[in-house]
């Protein structure tokens, strides 16, 4: 079975975000593989270690710098990678259309997508990709097991959690709790050098036209009151309740 894991490279969560004009300025920012995507790579490796015959293909759509994230995935254990390199910004829907073509060409039956992107805060790619492919998807997955030609997955819902059975092919979106991603090892980093990293272009997978465009980005930080009470527990608790009831007029 072929598994595609979709990768994205995003600013390190610790990096401070600046804007220049009405756009986010990412110059000088440290980029890392999206933490959400690491769960997908790890899960694919675990399926293999669990005895499944799988080939793991890392798939990424984005600028040249994404290479670093791709190499990380190869060092962790992906078998090979396809980098659809572009400086164009595609929205989640048009990304899904391009990536779906790539998934079809690879003949994958299982696709892992990070549950929520740490740059666009978007959870749309997984479901959109599944729809273009005509496959079911399971999002916010915290547990996964192969069961014949199907997977059993536990995932978060609005009211709690749910365990579902889905026939393959399917798209799984990953999140924390699914597994604990491993570190690559130095020997594997060196071995990854010899793994295939194929470059492609969006046009190789059909042209997709963006249906939305970015018009502005701004950092709006809500000013907080920062009123602190300290000292005696009873006194500070009383002061807090007073402030909440009489000043903020909440509770």
């Amino acid at each position: 079975m072929k598994i595609c894991t979709i990768l994205k490279q995003v600013p390190d969560a610790e990096a401070s975000i600046r804007t220049s004009g009405d756009r986010v300025d990412l110059s000088g920012v440290t980029f890392v593989m999206d933490g959400m995507d690491e769960y997908g790579v790890e899960e694919a490796i675990r399926l293999r270690e669990g005895g499944a015959q799988v080939e793991i293909v890392a798939l990424a759509l984005g600028p040249k710098r994404f290479e670093d994230a791709i190499r990380t995935s190869l060092a962790i254990g992906a078998d090979r990678a396809v980098h659809i390199e572009t400086d164009e910004t595609y929205d989640a829907i048009s990304q899904a259309r391009i990536l779906a073509e790539a998934v079809k060409k690879e003949g994958a039956e299982l696709v892992f997508v990070g549950g929520k992107e740490a740059d666009w805060d978007s959870a749309a790619l997984g479901p959109a990709l599944a729809e273009v492919l005509g496959w079911p998807h399971v999002d916010w997955t915290t547990k996964l097991a192969l069961s014949g030609a199907a997977v059993e997955a536990t995932h978060d819902t609005d009211s709690g959690t749910e365990t579902v059975k889905v026939a393959l092919p399917a798209v799984i979106t990953t999140q924390q709790g699914l597994n604990e991603p491993r570190y690559p090892t130095l020997p594997n980093i060196m071995k990854a050098k010899r793994k295939e990293l194929r470059k492609a272009q969006p046009a190789d997978y059909g042209a997709a036209t963006a249906l939305t465009r970015l018009t502005g980005e701004a950092i709006q930080v809500k000013t907080r009151l920062n009123k602190l009470f300290s000292g005696d527990a009873v006194e500070s608790a009383t002061a807090l309740v007073n402030a909440l009831r009489n000043e903020a007029k909440v509770l």
Binding site: D68, R71, T72, Y183, L186, I189
Partner: peptide, 15 residues
């Protein structure tokens, strides 16, 4: 090199 960057990233993460 890409490998050096990976090694640095691993060392940083581990550290």
């Amino acid at each position: 090199t890409p490998e050096q960057k990976e090694i640095q990233r691993l060392a940083r993460q581990f550290a």
